[in-house]
Design a protein around this nucleic acid. Structure first.
Length: 569
RNA sequence: UGUCUCAUGGUGUAAUGGUAGCACUACAGUUUUUGGUACUGUCUGUCUAGGUUCGAAUCCUGGUGAGACAACCA
């Protein structure tokens, strides 16, 4: 293929790649010359919890759009509610975004705009578009009506501008008790959109310090008021958020229209939020898992948090692959978890060193192998990638093999160790099983086999066709390691029951099993969070809990396993 | 008996009036120093009834179904 053809191919590939509906909107805006061809997005988390896989979807979009269309993406903390927020979360959010491989242009805080927002609120009051209400929260809720019934006006709705101004000043000065007054926008209590029924713009919070401004402010702006204005202040062109904010959009626009001048206005577009089968993904529930001690922390490998996934062994690339597969639409669906698991396998298959680890050991004695001797075998690190090289592993007379790799009376389709059958010991010799020793209850104590010295891996005779290959470690050299078998991410068995019952009752109870396994001796020096594939078992990484004396592995995900069914037949 | 939004195989997603395609799952086969990986194949789809059009998944109308909205949360 010549260069021109290659270029044509690439062009063709590019044109085949279909755009999602948001990219189409962006391209159209660009074509129409909106905002002078400027593209600006933001990722606006509230620092009240750790980022999870659902945020990764938003992050990939916010940062991705900016990257692909020559725009910028800022990180903005939506920190307008000091009751729930903390610097701990501010730090973890930054770490996780960077771990995913994204870098914001600027870092902003909604709290940076408190003065600006307050001044603007005063302007709203002066223009008769806002008023101070001193009813209780219950009364305000009652007057709000229901989605099918219009609301009624507050008795304080028609205060004079002067009085409103005075009261708002008092609220802001800390002279009014928390909950006693709020500032509301004066819109339409009969609107068919609940959010237009005089939404609250400011509430008093004096009981909690703000993580950045301390006790300086006594009143804090609400989301609907603060978010759109912040977007406007920053020059955001595309404000991307999830579907549940769809009904907020008219209000988002209304607030901006009240004061915006010129041609520029940010535009909100909503996409479907990420749902994965069985996965617990609400911040509230995740907080409970942490607080109730059901997990070891936000980075517990069963958590769907970014840091949990990282500790579990997920790579940033695997998460990108996953997000790339699910797409952005307006359809509120639920992704099968197998797509996520496939994405990690796909990535780790190319990166993880293959390692022998015996999880449920039974002793195999090579009866014709010299006593007390051992030799080093060369093992391929990764058959998918020669550049990952080879490693040396010891071989000796006494080995551990997987208990399930021996069957005394085997069915036809069983290709592993059974008396009279040849099997290959991975990277070593072909051996022929000769029998086993059992206790009085029929439990297998030892398995016996004879090796063929001509079949050492790499020698011509080793090319002999043998149906089965099994993994092994030597009794003498093998390293015991703690292996944490995480079934799945923390999951609920039956999401349908969620509303009826306490969700902690619905959690998958068997999601963590800790066992001791025997691994290749060189793993003692393995680095934390490094990924391995344990032959035929799954992908594992070295947990940060490991010490020089004790290796700890987490199972990232099991290998796709089709042979259990084969044997049944 | 409100407003907004959505509806393509089991799941997710393309086709932007012109051949319904891709991925996951499931199943079958080929290769293989692990039955993994890789490759090949099979099954399965436009919610419904009308209309516009030479032609509709796509546009229009009516049904049906699903989700969001009634926090001093974001």
């Amino acid at each position: 293929m010549n260069t021109r053809e290659m270029v044509e191919n690439i062009k063709e590939e590019e044109s085949k790649k279909s755009l999602n509906f948001i990219e189409i909107i962006v391209e159209e805006d660009l074509k129409e010359g909106k905002n002078e061809g400027r593209i600006q997005t933001r990722f606006p988390p509230e620092p009240n919890g750790y980022l999870h896989i659902g945020h990764a979807k938003a992050i990939c979009l916010d940062f991705g759009i900016a990257q692909n269309y020559g725009g910028i993406c800022n990180l903005r903390f939506d920190d307008t509610n000091p009751v729930k927020e903390d610097v701990e979360y501010v730090d973890s959010i930054q770490e996780d975004i960077q771990w995913l491989g994204f870098q914001w242009k600027n870092i902003y805080y909604a709290s940076d705009y408190f003065q600006q927002l307050w001044d603007l609120a005063v302007r709203f009051i002066k223009e008769g578009k806002a008023y101070v209400d001193e009813q209780s929260a219950e009364d305000i809720a009652k007057q709000k009506g229901t989605p099918t019934l219009p609301g009624t006006n507050s008795p304080y709705r028609d205060r004079s501008v002067e009085e409103n101004l005075q009261l708002f000043e008092k609220m802001s000065a800390g002279e009014i008790a928390e909950g006693a007054m709020v500032l509301r926008a004066k819109i339409d209590m009969a609107s068919s959109n609940m959010h237009f029924r005089d939404p609250i713009m400011y509430r008093i919070i004096t009981s909690h310090p703000h993580h950045r401004t301390g006790y300086k402010w006594k009143v804090y702006p609400m989301y609907d008021y603060a978010h759109g204005q912040s977007d406007y202040f920053e020059g955001v062109t595309h404000s991307l958020c999830t579907l549940e904010f769809e009904v907020h959009r008219p209000l988002y626009n209304w607030f901006i229209e009240q004061f915006a001048t010129g041609n520029y206005a940010p535009h909100q577009t909503e996409f479907n939020r990420l749902n994965i089968t069985y996965m617990v993904m609400s911040k509230r529930k995740m907080l409970r898992l942490v607080q109730d001690g059901l997990v070891r922390g936000w980075d517990d490998p069963r958590m769907p948090t970014i840091c949990g996934l990282r500790r579990r062994g997920y790579t940033p690339e695997s998460i990108h692959k996953f997000i790339g597969k699910i797409g952005y639409t307006k359809f509120d669906g639920i992704i099968d978890i197998s797509l996520l698991e496939h994405s990690v396998r796909e990535d780790l298959n190319e990166k993880a060193i293959r390692v022998s680890a015996v999880l449920d050991p039974v002793k195999l004695v090579i009866t014709n192998y010299p006593e007390g001797e051992f030799e080093m075998m060369e093992a391929v690190n990764n058959p998918e990638d020669d550049s990952m090289g080879m490693r040396q592993i010891p071989f000796a007379k006494e080995l551990y093999i997987e208990r399930e790799d021996f069957m005394e009376d085997a069915p036809k389709k069983y290709f592993r160790m059974t008396p009279g059958q040849e099997v290959r010991l991975k990277s070593a010799y072909i051996v022929k099983c000769t029998g086993c020793k059992k206790d009085e209850n029929g439990n297998i104590l030892e398995v016996y086999a004879e090796y063929d010295p001509e079949t050492k891996s790499g020698m011509p005779e080793s090319n002999r066709k043998v149906k089965g290959t099994i993994h092994w470690v030597t009794v003498q050299h093998a390293l015991p390691a703690e292996v944490r078998l995480y079934d799945r991410l923390f999951s609920i068995e039956n999401p349908g029951d969620e509303k009826e019952k306490d969700f902690t009752e619905l959690l998958n109870p068997g999601s963590l099993k800790v066992i001791t396994a025997y691994v290749e001796p060189w793993l003692k020096g393995a680095k934390t969070l490094q990924n391995f594939q344990f032959q035929r078992i799954g992908y594992f990484n070295v947990d940060p809990d490991s010490t020089p004396d004790k290796l700890v592995f987490n199972r990232t995900v099991a290998l796709k396993d089709s042979w259990a069914k084969e044997i049944k037949k």
